[in-house]
């Protein structure tokens, strides 16, 4: 067994992980053959979790909802609300959030692809004040009437408990803003 293992070619770097597990498998198979066990049994134990016949649900089953088409303005030649050209693999429960954002004066928008609420609003021609765009100046301070946001960056500017900084947050639910 050890003789055949050492005579193998050095695995190529790019396929290192795969080569390694096969090497381990082959060595273990040799070992099992020696002590009289069956190769089939071992295959089941090692790869059961990944086999298509397994009872486990595949990683994505439900269809992902179609992205909503948004009419958006062009800010600095940058379309904040356009889907990425090479989207990541979609997983159930991990869909890109898409939330309605409504202002009390009637303006509204839909947050979907942008990296911050401010970018999303700007792309849809809803203009609010901004300055630093990093959460430290407080210019974009907006009152949150209903909903929840997630901060992608810790906000440093002073904000009240019912206020948000759209430049560094994304919605976690539909929002009503003032």
């Amino acid at each position: 067994m050890s003789a055949s293992a050492s005579s193998r070619k050095t695995p190529r770097v790019g396929r290192r992980r795969w080569v390694k597990s096969k090497t381990f498998f082959s060595d273990a198979q040799d070992e099992l053959t020696l002590i009289g066990g069956g190769a089939t049994q071992l295959e089941m134990d090692l790869f059961d979790a990944y086999s298509p016949s397994s009872d486990r649900a595949p990683i994505h089953t439900q269809p992902i909802p179609e992205p909503v088409e948004i009419e958006q303005g062009d800010l600095f030649g940058y379309l904040a609300e356009s889907p990425e050209p090479t989207p990541q693999t979609s997983f159930e429960g991990m869909e890109k959030p898409s939330f309605e954002v409504i202002f009390s004066d009637g303006r509204n928008a839909r947050f979907q692809h942008a990296s911050s609420l401010l970018e999303s609003l700007e792309a849809q021609d809803v203009h609010i004040e901004f300055q630093c765009r990093e959460g430290y100046c407080g210019s974009c301070r907006t009152r949150l009437i209903e909903g929840e946001v997630h901060y992608t960056e810790e906000p440093m500017a002073w904000i009240d408990d019912d206020e948000i900084l759209p430049c560094c947050c994304i919605p976690k639910s539909p929002l009503r803003l003032q």
Partner: peptide
């Protein structure tokens, strides 16, 4: 309302994302 809206672009530390 802000009578000088263009000032935001100057006050922004980085103009594009």
């Amino acid at each position: 309302t802000n009578p000088l809206p263009w000032i935001n672009a100057w006050l922004n530390s980085d103009n594009v994302q």
